[in-house]
Write a protein that binds this DNA or RNA. Structure first.
Lengths: 257, 257
DNA sequence: TATATTTGAGTGATTTTCACTCAAATATAA
DNA sequence: TTATATTTGAGTGAAAATCACTCAAATATA
């Protein structure tokens, strides 16, 4: 059985005193592994209760600042897009089952009391480049891993629902928010870009029309070299022209008049 | 000076004990008066502090149920679309200035303490038919009125910001949520419908193209009569074909591939 | 009765969407 | 070495949507 870090636990207990009670923040950190979208899962306790990362809001901290701090604690980065996607507050939302995972450990009563209450959570999503690592940001997290968004139904609480709602907003942000900057590596091919779009949209797209549309937008810069070690014809490598990409983003809705 | 209702105040004081502290709900109730969009304003105290309506969440109440209860308290209706548009939580969000408006009244200390803390608020918007009245739902509300969305900068706290954010989401929901059902009276003309769209979008639209687009969608049923008492050529009256309208709604985004 | 104004209806150029074909490049198999 | 299968790059054209227009109809007002 894993042993809880006494110092970290004392710090957590102390921090909890300064947080707003019954409100949490949860993060859905999307990344693209080349085939599918993934989000981080953290193991709460040692039983098998995987959740998405989260934290609380200090009494003297702005809401978005808290989300950004928690993001930094989780992946060490703070320069990413961070967008609220919803607030979830059914009366059944509490960590009762997760606290059960610590019956073999010495958890202070003050911590048990804190986590036994009903929580309303505010969800933020962000997009991380594939190389970022998840950190064990809390003494209560015993492990971390990346979870495919198609397999989130194994997550505890309502976290599968959180991921699904975040994914819906991610889709609707495709034309208006600079998602590609965080999703894409420095160089990539158009077939790889297409796979990213298909992962976000959850459907296949027409290959020819996708390529044509992407090239017409003038947001891709040809690198003049092709990708090595491919199956058949080597695809051309591109980089994202960030200036043109940012200019291409729009909130406009086509209404037909 | 207005007198506070003692009984209502005692009930409020009692209710506050059962609510989740430091979390509020605010409602942006849009209506269309034929020319512009309006939202309800409620006067907190007797000084001149107008806010949008709101309330709190009972410990044993789901988040959305609380929003729907508050909506019912405010306009007596519960069958309307209700959609979360954001959560707002700067550290400066508190009712300090509004509580000052009660210095000439006997407010229990427990109530003053409650309202003196920092609040995180969850915003919901809804759409009300023009005939609905705003009710004085709280003993702390001394008056109510409709405020044009262009004049919300006079509202207290960050409520002008809340209305603006709600309006942005309202716009983006134009093709996917059944807004017209709640906005429109039983019968209306196409020029009136166009004014509604212009009020929501905050811009003018081409008259011919708007008419053409609306008629092509098959969601309008001609009533065979024309509107009386008009300036020049009498416009034709229509009703909304709700079945076809609901079928026409879509979450799809045109991506070009 | 003439005029101004608003509504209803339509036209056509341009752009976008979308299903499709064909050629080029290369790994793999014969 | 040569043939084949597979993937990528490029293009075509029909259909639909967008968008800036014109013109006729209806009626209040002059």
């Amino acid at each position: 059985m894993a042993q809880l870090n006494e110092d970290a636990l004392r710090k957590l207990d102390n921090d909890l005193q300064g947080y707003i009670p019954q409100i949490s923040i949860n993060l859905v950190i999307f990344r693209f592994n080349g085939e599918a979208l993934e989000v981080p899962g953290v193991l709460v306790g040692d039983k098998n209760s995987w959740t998405i990362p989260g934290g609380f809001i200090d009494q003297s901290e702005n809401l978005e600042d808290a989300a950004r701090r928690i993001l930094k604690e989780q992946i060490g980065s703070e320069k990413l897009l961070l967008k609220q996607f919803g607030c979830f507050g059914n009366t059944s939302r509490n960590f009762g089952a997760e606290i059960e995972n610590f019956t073999n450990h010495q958890l202070p009563n003050s911590i048990i009391d804190w986590f036994s209450r009903r929580f309303i959570t505010i969800g933020y999503y962000t997009v991380a480049p594939p190389e970022l690592k998840i950190l064990n940001a809390s003494p209560l997290f015993f492990s971390t891993k990346w979870v495919c968004v198609k397999d989130t139904n194994t997550l505890a609480l309502d976290h599968a629902n959180l991921v699904n709602e975040a994914l819906k907003i991610l889709r609707s942000d495709l034309l208006s928010k600079p998602l590609l900057i965080d999703f894409l590596p420095d160089s990539f091919t158009i077939p790889e870009l297409q796979k990213l779009y298909e992962a976000i949209l959850g459907r296949t797209v027409d290959r020819g029309n996708f390529r044509q549309r992407m090239l017409k937008q003038n947001i891709l810069t040809k690198l003049g070299v092709t990708k090595k070690k491919t199956s058949r014809r080597p695809p051309i490598l591109y980089t994202l022209n960030k200036q043109e990409y940012l200019k291409s983003l729009t909130e406009d809705i086509k209404l037909g008049f």
